[in-house]
Every structure is written in C-alpha cells, then in structure tokens.
Simulated scan of single mutants.
Amino acid sequence: MPPTNKTPPLIEFKGTTLPIVTVSLRSLQLGELGEAASALFGDDPFFDGEAAVLDLSQAAAASSAKWQFLKELFRTHGLNVIGVRGGSDELRESARTAGLPTYAAVDRSLRAAPRADDELPAPAAPPPVPEAKPEPAPEEKPAPAASAGARSPTLFLTRPLRSGQQIYARGGDLVVLAAVNSGAEVIADGNIHIYAPLHGRALAGASGDTEARIFSTRFDAQLVSVAGLYRTFDSGVPSDLAGKAVQVRLAEKTGDSSGKLVVEPLRTE
C-alpha cells in the first residue's frame, strides 16, 4: 500500500479577520499629536500591541511626514502602525518609502456603510450565548413575558474597552466609567451612560425600548443607535457635537412616522 502520511506544506494561506485599530489624524505635527495622545491615553501604554492603520483622509494637506517618529509615538501607547490609508498620492508615496504600505479605505464595521446623516435600521447586535434554563414542569403554565419597563441590575464597566471588544447589558442599563475605544462596542437593552470618551459604537434600547437614551460626556462616536435607528459618523462628528457632552434619543413619533434619531448637546445648567 502507498504511504498515507503526507508531509504538511511549509506554507499555507488561510483567510482570517484580525482586529486593526484605525487612527484618524487631523494633523501630522508631532507636537500636536503627542499632546492629543497623552490627553487621551495618559503616559502609559493604553493598547496591548494592536496593529494600527493611520487614516490620512482628514489630515492637513502635506506631501510627507516624519513617519518613523509617528510610529514611535503610537508605539509608546501600545499601537504598532502597519500602514496608512487615504490622503494625497504624495503623502501615501512618502509613507510607502518609509515602509508603510497603503490599505484600501474600506470600513468593515458595516455591511453597507451609509452616510453620516443616514438613519436606517441598525444591524442586529450579536447577544451573548444565553444561559441554559431548565424546562418547566408539564403542569406549570409558562411565565408571562417581562414588561418593557422591567430592568435588570445596572451593569458597570470600569475598564477601557479596546477595539474588537463588546459589552452587552442584557435587560438593563449600562454605565461606562472608562474610554470606549474606536472599534469597540457597548450595547444595552436600556440606557447607556458613558462618563468618558466615546470613540466606538453605542447601541441603546437593543431589545426595542424606544424610551432608551445614550449619554456621553465626551462624544466622538463611530455609530450610535436607539431601538433600531442608527447614525454613523464616517466623515467625523460635527464640530458642534465633537468632544462635547451629548444625549442621543428618539424624537416622538408623529402619524405614520417611525421616529427620528436625535443627537444633541446635553444641557447641564
């Protein structure tokens, strides 16, 4: 019989999806970027060695940059810059010469990326695997469904949420006391209170509660959603909302209208 053992190939190609942080830069000045990074992440490494791509589409017009210094700047905060996307041809060529290839500007967070002003049904949030529950005895009647106003204990998040991570407060509110980084996602069946920078995605009223709201003391979100209506900020958050305290809610329905998602400054006086 011929031998059945085969020598495994030395090289194999397999498709995979890796978490990559996209860092949008509005300036290429090292001094300004250093101050901004320190204000966001402090002086210690914030990330755990994640790969990062620099988005240059919103950076000031420039033909080159000090790429090695930029890479070192983000490395001090735990990010490994592997390439760039967007920006002028000259800027991308400058990056390529410095060993940073160009990646296509594709947002993989949405299947069909709508514009910032679009308000469409939100993609279904993948909930955690439910815990197994024992079957009721045959003579027992099924318990009535919980009312919309029923709430589970509030879930508190006290650590930063990094890209690719997700927290889901099933049946209740979520209070976040640390930064929600770009690419991270917080979900709650009730309200979401974020007393820290919101750079990722926040989805309140995930089970359909139209009275749910999102509160953020420092707003710079990628996506917000309440009860199935969502809004993205692919081109950046408007200046009247960026970095400010805001609330996100649904306006009251009128007639056959399905409502409107409102993102507005939060009045504290």
Rank of each mutant, 00 (worst) to 15 (best):
P2D: 10
T4R: 09
L10R: 06
T16D: 15
T17D: 13
T17Q: 14
V21I: 13
T22S: 08
S24R: 00
S27K: 06
G34E: 00
D44Q: 15
D48Y: 07
E50H: 06
A52D: 07
V53N: 05
S57N: 09
K66R: 10
W67A: 04
L70F: 07
L70R: 02
F74N: 00
T76C: 10
H77Q: 08
V84L: 02
R92P: 06
E93A: 12
T97Q: 15
T97L: 15
Y103F: 08
D118I: 04
L120H: 08
P127V: 11
P127R: 11
V129C: 07
A132G: 11
E140K: 04
A143G: 01
S152I: 04
T154S: 03
L157A: 12
A169Y: 05
L177K: 04
A178F: 15
V180N: 12
V180H: 12
G183I: 02
E185V: 13
I187D: 09
A188T: 05
N191H: 02
I194S: 09
A196H: 11
A196K: 10
P197E: 09
P197Q: 09
L198N: 09
R213Q: 15
R218T: 13
F219P: 01
F219S: 03
V224L: 01
S225A: 00
V226Q: 03
A227T: 00
Y230H: 15
R231K: 03
R231P: 07
F233Y: 14
P238Q: 05
L241P: 02
G243W: 14
K244F: 06
K244W: 09
A245M: 09
V248Q: 01
R249I: 13
A251F: 10
S258Y: 15
K260S: 08
